[in-house]
């Protein structure tokens, strides 16, 4: 069992937890993720690592409940436990691979921009923090639909230059992250490396934008996954015409080579099933009055 030490509701629908997982905390690096399972019957859910404390042996996760399994996480409080918590999975971010002086010097010469959409700010934070701790200041665009959904602004501001933008203009700049990125470039910022993490549709459009400006762009893919160790092949993507497994070959890929349209279609595979399962969980038997028509109980 993996004990939850802290649990709280962040802005809007987002939740944050600190979990005791010494083996994961000992070795994880920015860009990697964990898979968690709350009880015997739950799904295995991949979640990004937001922060880690090697000495305390703890991992921080930030997530937005969507399906049945993650919605159950809302009820969790300090003292509860995850039945399973495995990681670190995936390859670490290329930026944070080496602490050799030459590697750090090379990074210092790069102008790096992170583009975070929604809960994508969670996996961006450890990368920006790692760079900051190695003397590198990056720019971070945090995008959200509205003010309530802006995530991790305060913590991010301590480790990077942060630009917040909201779709509805309720906070910070107004408009999508692509607009913010183009505005920053127009204002005189220049970038040669971009890391973009968020909903697939957003990553697709950020990649189209950065391609225009010739900025090398890394995205972190979040496809459907079961085991996360390269066994099931559910997370396969087409990258530059080749099949890649997000869990062992990624999750980070060259965004200009990823087939996003295909990835988005594959992401919708279990949508109907998930919806049915969610209603069943949320509404219980009231939804299934025995009409026998909708099939939601099957």
């Amino acid at each position: 069992m993996y004990k939850i030490l802290e649990a709280r509701n962040l802005a809007g629908p987002n939740y944050e937890m600190i979990v005791e997982a010494p083996r994961v905390a000992a070795r994880c690096l920015p860009g990697q993720f964990v898979i968690v399972k709350i009880d015997e019957k739950a799904e295995r859910i991949p979640l990004t690592i937001t922060d880690y404390d090697r000495e305390k042996g703890t991992i921080e996760i930030v997530f937005q409940p969507i399906g049945v399994s993650t919605s159950k996480y809302r009820e969790l409080k300090a003292g509860d436990s995850f039945m399973d918590f495995v990681g670190p999975l995936g390859k670490p971010s290329d930026l944070c691979l080496s602490e050799e002086p030459e590697a750090i010097e090379a990074l210092k010469k790069k102008k790096i921009v992170f583009v975070a959409g929604g809960v994508g700010a969670a996996p961006i934070y450890p990368q920006a923090k790692w760079l900051y701790e190695h003397g590198i200041m990056s720019d971070v665009i945090i995008g959200a639909r509205n003010q309530e959904l802006v995530l991790l602004e305060e913590r991010m501001s301590k480790v990077a230059n942060v630009y917040v933008t909201t779709d509805d203009g309720s906070y910070g700049r107004s408009g999508m992250v692509t607009k913010c990125l183009e505005d920053l470039i127009a204002e005189g910022h220049s970038y040669d490396h971009c890391v973009c993490i968020g909903p697939m549709i957003m990553m697709k459009f950020v990649c189209l934008t950065t391609k225009k400006y010739g900025i090398h762009t890394i995205v972190s893919m979040n496809p459907i996954m079961v085991d996360g160790t390269g066994m099931c092949g559910a997370c396969r993507l087409m990258v530059d015409g080749e099949v890649k497994f997000a869990c062992v070959d990624g999750p980070e890929f060259d965004g200009h080579l990823v087939d996003f349209d295909l990835a988005m279609k594959r992401l919708s595979l279990y949508k109907t099933h998930e919806g049915e399962a969610f209603l069943k969980w949320k509404e219980g038997k009231t939804h299934h009055g025995g009409c026998g028509e909708c099939g939601g109980d099957r």
């Binding site: 079961v226 085991d227 066994m231 099931c232 092949g233 559910a234 396969r236 087409m238 099949v243 295909l262 279609k265 594959r266 919708s268 595979l269």
Partner: peptide, 17 residues
């Protein structure tokens, strides 16, 4: 890569594990 193509590993892992 179409929706509805699975590896046997995925299909069996979902069902068995």
């Amino acid at each position: 890569q179409s929706k509805g193509v699975f590896s046997a590993n995925e299909f069996l892992t979902r069902n068995n594990l």
